[in-house]
Design a protein around this nucleic acid. Sequence first.
DNA 1: TTGACGCATGCCGTTATGGGTATATGATCG
DNA 2: CGATCATATACCCATAACGGCATGCGTCAA
Lengths: 123, 123
Amino acid sequence: MPLWVYDRLMARAATTSDVFNAIAEPQRREILVLLRAGERPVTELAQELGMTQPGASKHLRVLREVGLVRDRKAGKQRLYGLDARGLRPVHEWAGGFERFWNESFDRLDAYVQDLKAGKAGKE
Amino acid sequence: MPLWVYDRLMARAATTSDVFNAIAEPQRREILVLLRAGERPVTELAQELGMTQPGASKHLRVLREVGLVRDRKAGKQRLYGLDARGLRPVHEWAGGFERFWNESFDRLDAYVQDLKAGKAGKE
DNA sequence: TTGACGCATGCCGTTATGGGTATATGATCG
DNA sequence: CGATCATATACCCATAACGGCATGCGTCAA
């Protein structure tokens, strides 16, 4: 749909195009958490999250389009289930920074040395 | 700044208020990756990412406001360095789904059983 | 078939976002 | 001080994002 045929202006990449963008929304993250407990129909999710049914549907659509959830028709309702495989890249990407938040750098740069020397490791 | 005192309309939480939102932007993720190699001045980052200096500055601002980078004055320039601690929650959040993408559920719901039975584990 | 239910979509309104260009601010140097 | 480099900001523009409401559509029950 968004063909990125802009002249010079562009806003943001569509949230439906990237898992990182999809999970940028707190409520969508909430949905994913809820779905860890199992499938759920839309209305139930909407209730649990305190949002309207259309609201839930829209978020679910985004999650579906990036592949984080799957839907299955179950009679009158539609059950949404988790497909967390798409979260693995996120986990790995963030994991790539692990040594940095542990502050055990194998390569200290001036910035860090500054911290240790000046502030005695504090903060 | 955003006090969320809307009447009935609201868009999305400001990107500067949430790490998940801050890293939703591909170029900002790129910046973080680059900074793993050490501090860098703005212009250098801009070059490496193929964006304008103001562009880089804006992204750095966002990253700074969510605490993912620190800046340090170095004479004429301003060196930006990584502070990856804020990425830990992201890593942990995504990690909370690990057993799901491994598909070794301790609690199979109808959805999953459906998959295994119907599609013989395929897909 | 007619309702009622469950969900998706469409439309509207407001804000956030991201990029560009021009410009203000800061610091350094001659 | 004046010129210059390094950044940050201020606008402006176009568009994506979110929420609310109304509505369309498929399904199931009476």
